[in-house]
Amino acid sequence: MPIITYRDALNQALREEMHKDDRVFLMGEEVGVYNGAYKVSKGLLEEFGEMRVVDTPITELGFAGVGVGAAMVGLRPVVEFMTWNFALLAIDQVVNAAAKMLYMSGGQFPMPMVFRGPNGAALQLSAQHSQAWESWLAHIPGLKVVTPGTPYDAKGLLKSAIRDDNPVIVLEGEMLYNTKGEVPEEEYLIPLGKAELKREGSDCSIITSGKMVLVAMQAADTLAKEGIKIDVVDLRTIRPMDVEAITTSVKKTNRAVVLEEGWEICGIGAQVVDYIQRDCFDHLDAPVIRVHQADVPMPYAKMLERAAKPDLAKTIAAVKKVMYLEA
């Protein structure tokens, strides 16, 4: 099976879906002539022309709304934000328009569109460029939110997102674009709303998604050497969340760590813990622990940034704590 980067997996998904359906088009800053700020759209302008690969001015609110309008009359736009940090300027279109149009029109106007781009912290980009937006977006009824953690998932989830008739948010990991993994040549889709058990174990569950899947897998590898077997549940989709996958795992292991990239307060982990306490109360052998970013804007200095981010050491410590083991 070919091994390709997360970036190329996304590129393949876009190319395949644009070939399949001429209503699909890509728009955003630098997606065309520049081939994408992160090269996700490399070669697409040449292949599909400027009506379908649209370079926009730096006007997130404006072009997100252009996508909403195009979707309203039956096109299937893929709107790229150079990063999700910039999408805050466009949040009115995502929340007030895309997410609500179907409902407030009494079902008359579906919004078959995708908003996608890199999410979360990279390295030393400091406060305004280092944020994970999952919980903001997953809060909104009318949206679906996916967070692929591997090249295989990136391709399969993006293809499903483009084919979905609802507005789908695709949060790509900024630090994941160069990561590699197996991606089959034959076509496949990954269903939205379904988690994947990335690794099977019986001692403790780590429930996570997106970039943190890699951290969870590393933690599982490390802990395996000490004889601790981890169940890694990759949510893949944050909304709608696969509650059954979470509770099945926790009922098996009786212990859980919830690992997320974003902040603690009202974070994704809070929701996961709520599902666990509702459905697994009698199965728990220890309180659930959350691992997340420190409750501060992201600092620039290397050492402070490292201290702010959720990482391998913090995850391992959390697992040991819920297992009542010495760190």
Binding site: V68, G69, A70, M72, V73, A97
Partner: peptide, 13 residues
């Protein structure tokens, strides 16, 4: 808020 949406409908046309 609807002015960009109108612009998008025009784009689709």
């Amino acid at each position: 808020g609807h002015v960009p949406i109108a612009t998008g409908v025009a784009f689709a046309i």
